[in-house]
Design a protein around this nucleic acid. Sequence first.
DNA 1: CGGTATCCGCGACGATACTG
DNA 2: CAGTATCGTCGCGGATACCG
Lengths: 107, 107
Amino acid sequence: MGDQDFKNSVEATLKVIGGKWKPMILCHLQEGTKRFGELKREMPEITEKMLTEQLRELEQDGIIHRKAYIQVPPKVEYSLTEYGKTLREVLDVMSRWGSKHRMRRTE
Amino acid sequence: MGDQDFKNSVEATLKVIGGKWKPMILCHLQEGTKRFGELKREMPEITEKMLTEQLRELEQDGIIHRKAYIQVPPKVEYSLTEYGKTLREVLDVMSRWGSKHRMRRTE
DNA sequence: CGGTATCCGCGACGATACTG
DNA sequence: CAGTATCGTCGCGGATACCG
């Protein structure tokens, strides 16, 4: 693989998980299916607008699945797709490196 | 490790390599030591300002080493630190996932 | 050669109000 | 409950000029 491909592929990954809130969202969805309000409650700092936007982008990238129940009151569930679950390895490696890095910076 | 730590660690990694030009810079430095002008030539799209800024940040994070030769004309060499080389695993995993992701999107 | 300094546009992100 | 719509802010990154 050429340097260009290597770099472009890294950037493609960053586009998918690089959003400000996406790692956090993906982390919460590792635990399983969650409703919109559940995610909102677990991430009080995020606005509804940003949560919606980031969820939509993750959905478009095939990472998460959105299941809307047509009922009143509305109910929407978000979960990782099988494809989205393949991101776990990436997140794990990043988490491990980041954890060492943080330790290093505070030594 | 708690969810908070996991998420914070991923974000710590993103802070280090998430900059717009950093994956590209790190990719070029995998090949070995490079001079400022060399990097500039290999990345014609980046401005000198951004190249300088991103190199400084990578240096502050301990990822790269900056060696300035006190002479006229100036000569500055950048290289990965031993610590910076540990990022390779992270970049590799991201590259592999991103490459599959790009294929998937164009199927 | 390898940078700074300065100015500025634009898009990401936020706050708030409203709705099916 | 799960969103839109609208408006406002902020800082990243680009353009250009200058410097040791």
